[in-house]
Design a protein around this nucleic acid. Structure first.
Lengths: 207, 207
DNA sequence: GGGAAATCTTAACATTTGTTATCGTTTCTG
DNA sequence: CAGAAACGATAACAAATGTTAAGATTTCCC
């Protein structure tokens, strides 16, 4: 009997979440049971918002299936795709969630998406009552810090084209799933310019 | 008697560090004593490196007095000032420290600087043995995640000039302490261009 | 299936930003 | 104190990127 695959009474989404948690900390059968029982599963249709800007985030999402993008709006009203989240990733306006201030971003499903919803109350409960709750929180915060640190370094040291060429390493299969103008936005350039960069590339290596 | 100001046998640096920790978690007299006893104080002359790129970081620094900048080098050899750390802040190549991979950055003192050195072994000890060690680690990781998240949003949504104008909010007094070309580098533009932006600004509001 | 919307490309032109070089001033260092 | 180095401003020119507009596909939705 495989000790990793327990809880057949939980949905595939819950089990994927439990698997992700188990890769970071160990928790007891009872802890896991309580935690998963207080999560909610949610289906989000394509091009639907999971959360809006302006309200204090009370939920963290775990992506079971589908793809979510995070959008912020500049002072001029221009939208920027600042992040994508795919299967088995946590997603939220995590900075606003941590500080409990009104969110500056919108979470939008790009595909029909299945998420597990972790309410703020449950996460707080985890920090207080899970034996390794703070450690789990530390690992998650560290993980996303590393991700952001890497992004910042890339923004300083690498050109848009270089960032485009290595996008697939961070988001496997993204080119098949996200329209190009959103990728351009993520890269910090206009769709027109990305198109131009691709053509220049094409003409250099006419494979 | 003030319960916050104990331990007169510790140096000003240790006491500043203890104060910073106490603002995040509570720890016992014994925990504090052990922890501080295993920190090292270090004086770093102006324009001296505290750590080099290429070696796995084994230390986190806490700035008691002075100013440190973090530099990364692009593929073309160009240096970028990606971060500054002033009094009462922790600083390291934290992403490389977390992952225990060779550092990509250099820490350099811009002023004569006093730091408290937290060895990796001590930090690991804290995670294992401090009652709230993981919580402390979570708070620190969350704090720097929020800082980085904010930077990324600014890079997307605001112009170099706007970022320049709000620099003092993040690093109070920085204009009096850091040469302008390093600030330009932090903003992601050339010194020439920053000079140009300042002039355009000057001509608009001839105060 | 068919019309509407979204998407991508391309071109022409505008704006921003980088590059190189020079010069006067300040700051460091011996 | 004096020479050297660092620093900041500026100008002229070059390269990168944005803006607007048009047209050709593709995709979506009823």
């Amino acid at each position: 009997m495989n000790p990793v695959d327990i809880s057949p009474r939980f949905s595939p989404g819950s089990r994927a979440l439990a698997h992700a948690v188990r890769s970071m900390i160990s928790w007891s059968r009872e802890e896991e049971k309580y935690f998963l029982a207080h999560c909610e599963e949610r289906s989000v249709p394509r091009l639907t918002d999971l959360s809006q800007a302006g309200s204090v985030p009370q939920e963290v999402f775990f992506v079971v299936k589908g793809l979510i993008r995070v959008i912020i709006q500049g002072p001029d009203g221009v939208e920027h795709s600042v992040h994508f989240a795919m299967e088995n990733q946590f997603i939220a306006d995590y900075a606003s969630f941590i500080r409990q201030v009104p969110s500056v971003s919108v979470l939008q499903a790009i595909e029909p998406t299945e998420v597990v919803v972790l309410p703020r109350s449950l996460i707080e409960w985890g920090y207080q009552h899970l034996a390794q709750g703070d450690r789990l929180g530390r690992f998650i915060a560290e993980f996303y810090f590393v991700y952001h640190d890497n992004r910042i370094n890339n923004l300083y040291a690498r050109s848009p084209k270089e960032r485009y060429d290595s996008l697939e390493e961070v988001f496997p299969g993204i080119f098949q799933r996200v329209p190009q103008h959103m990728i351009a936005s993520y890269l910090g350039i206009t769709p027109v310019h990305l198109s131009r960069l691709k053509r220049a590339d094409r003409q250099k290596r006419p494979a």
